[in-house]
Simulated scan of single mutants.
Amino acid sequence: MSMSATAADDTPPQPSWVREDGTVDMSKMPESMPVMGPDGEPLKDASGKQVMVKTEEDKPVEPQALPETAPNSLSENGKTWVETDENGVTTEVQEIEPSIPAGD
């Protein structure tokens, strides 16, 4: 049985778009990067061309608007309200009456 080990000196160099603290500088990030296969080698498509993936900066997700109900107040029907916790997280709560399905 033969085994190989990777020496600490074999660590690849830090890419130019990665800062020393490990964060990414998106202005230096390439537009696309190669996809690596499970064997660690560049993945190729059926025609032998290198498979690439586009890189994009994550765009912030717009929060969904909650109903216009004052925080920590009960709605008119008394079944739906909005609560805001100490961290400012707002959650809509709905109280639903239990029901029993009709028998056959």
Rank of each mutant, 00 (worst) to 15 (best):
L74S: 05
R19S: 07
T84Y: 01
G22H: 03
G78H: 00
K44W: 01
T80C: 05
D25F: 08
Q64W: 06
L66H: 05
N87Y: 00
V35K: 10
P101H: 04
G22N: 07
D39M: 12
P67G: 07
V53I: 15
T11N: 08
P38L: 15
E57Y: 01
V18H: 07
K49T: 13
Q94D: 00
S2A: 14
D85Q: 01
L66I: 04
V35G: 06
M29D: 00
E83F: 10
D104L: 11
D21P: 00
E20W: 06
D39K: 12
K54R: 10
P67V: 10
P38M: 14
V82R: 02
W17E: 04
V53M: 15
R19C: 03
V18L: 15
V18G: 05
S2I: 12
S4I: 08
K54L: 07
V35M: 14
E20R: 15
E95D: 09
D85R: 01
A46I: 09
Q50K: 13
Q94H: 05
T84R: 14
D58F: 09
P34M: 09
P42L: 02
P71L: 02
E95P: 00
A7N: 00
P38S: 14
M26K: 14
V51C: 06
G22T: 03
A65P: 04
K28N: 06
D85V: 02
D58C: 09
S75E: 05
G22L: 11
V61T: 14
N77R: 08
M52P: 11
G22E: 01
E97S: 11
E95K: 13
K44V: 13
M36F: 15
T6E: 14
E31T: 08
P60R: 05
T23G: 04
V51Y: 06
G40W: 02
N72T: 00
V51G: 06
